[in-house]
Amino acid sequence: MVEARPRVGGAAQAVLVAKKDLRIEARSRVAINQVVPFALLVLVLFGFALDADTAALRNFAPGLFWLAVLLAAVLAVHRSVSVESGDGVGDALLLAGLRPDAVFVGKTLALGGQLLALAVVLLGGIVVLYGASIEDAGLLVITLIAAVIGIASTGTVYGALLAGQQARETVLPMLLLPVLSPVLIAATRAWGDAMGTVATDGWAWLALLAGFAAIYSLVGAMSYGTLLEAAHV
């Protein structure tokens, strides 16, 4: 390094990257105009598929909710990757001296923030459309956060691997959805407890979710540099 310059810590770098992604989202409005309506549409389609059986919809509301989140998450991950792969932004970030793990955390935060907002809208959707009722708000909220971190970190890992690939649209769901099946299982069970539709220990399922989120956050932070190198950008 030739010149001394203001040092930016890892956390600050992550916030910078997250703010960049969120700012792009705020200006392009892809998430709000396309991903959220898509997820709501999925909720409506589930209603048609289950023949508008109110009791069934209420019973399966947690599972349907998380399935809608997963499907929308695939779209959100595409978006998160494509803002990076155009114009060689990914390379530019690394050339600017940003730490790969900070980039990973930043992108995960931005993606997670968007998914969280999406989930809040969808939660309104299942309350209105399926008649879901919330019995344990604490469990519900913490589960939501843990699951979103798990989905966002996994999505960022696999998204980075496929950056710049023509075939990303078809390969990403194939890679991501089986990997996220434990999140679907655990989040559905925990919300089932929080919404009183199944008798199970939701907090135990929350622990599984937290474990998943921790593992993938760690894997992502440790391997993101290698991932970016391996990806064809």
């Binding site: 496929l162 690939q165 023509q166 075939a167 390969v171 194939m174 890679l175 089986p178 064809h232």
Partner: peptide
Amino acid sequence: LGYLAVRRLEG
């Protein structure tokens, strides 16, 4: 199947 799909990607 996902792994095999990744193997067939370009690069």
